[in-house]
Amino acid sequence: MFSDTKPWLRYHATCGGQHSIDGPAVSLENVTLGYPGNQEPILQSLNLTLGRGRCVSLVGDNGAGKSTLLKSLAGLLSKRAGEMKILGHAVGKCHHQVSYLPQHREIDWSFPINVRRFVATGAYIHLGWFRRSGKTELERAEAILDNLQLLDLGKKRLNELSGGQQQRVLLARTLLHGAELLLLDEPLNAVDAENRARLIEALHALKAEGKTMLIATHDLDFGAGFFDASYRVGEGTAKEEPA
C-alpha cells in the first residue's frame, strides 16, 4: 500500500523491506510470558504455529492471558523464555507487517483530533521520524473510511463518536497500516448490532485478501467459516480446541 513512501529515518521496529517470505506468520516454541514486576508467569510452555492467511481465535476467561499473548506478539511485552518469531523475524523487527488493535480502553478518546487524522496515524510506520502525513496518506485514510462507511464522520472529534463507531475507526487505522498479520484484541467488545455487522463484514474482506488474523475474543459469532482454528487460553497455557 505504501511502496511509494520512503521514510527519511525509519522507526526502529521496521526491517526496511527485508521481508522473510518463508516461515509461518507466528511461531512460538516453549514460550513463557509474564509482566515485569510480577514473578509469577501468566503463560508458560506455550507452543503455537499460525500459518499465513489463517484466522485464529483466542478464547478464555478474563485474565487468562489472551491480551498478554497479543501484547507479547506486538512487542509490548518481552518474553521470559522460549523462541518467538513473527513472519520469520524476531518480534519487533518487522512491524510494518504487523498491526495491533488494542482494547478500546487503552486509547485516550478525549484527545483533540479528528477521525480522518486519527486514521492517518496508521500510515506513520511507513513515514518514519519527521515526515508528515501528506495528501496521499490522507486520501488513503479517506478511502478506507469510505469503505467502512465512516466518511461522514471524518471531521468529527473522536469523543463525538459512539463506542461502536470508535471501534470501527480503530479498525480503519489498522487497515491503513496495511500489515500482513493483524493482532486484534476484543474488536467486537461493547459494539452495537449495526457497527458489529459492519466490523464483521470488514474482517471477512480482510480474510478474503489473505491476511493473517489472531483475534482475542469472548464472542465467536463472526459468521460461518471465518475462524480456521481456535485456541483456549487458560491455566497458564493455550491449547487448540477441537473443530
Binding site: 521496521t14 512487542g75 512491524h95 496515524t121 506513520y124 473522536l158
Partner: peptide, 13 residues
C-alpha cells in the same frame, strides 16, 4: 499521547 501502545508497536518510542 493518544495511543502509547500502538506508538510502541510501530517503534515510535
Amino acid at each position: 499521547s493518544i495511543d502509547p501502545e500502538y506508538a510502541q508497536v510501530i517503534g515510535a518510542r
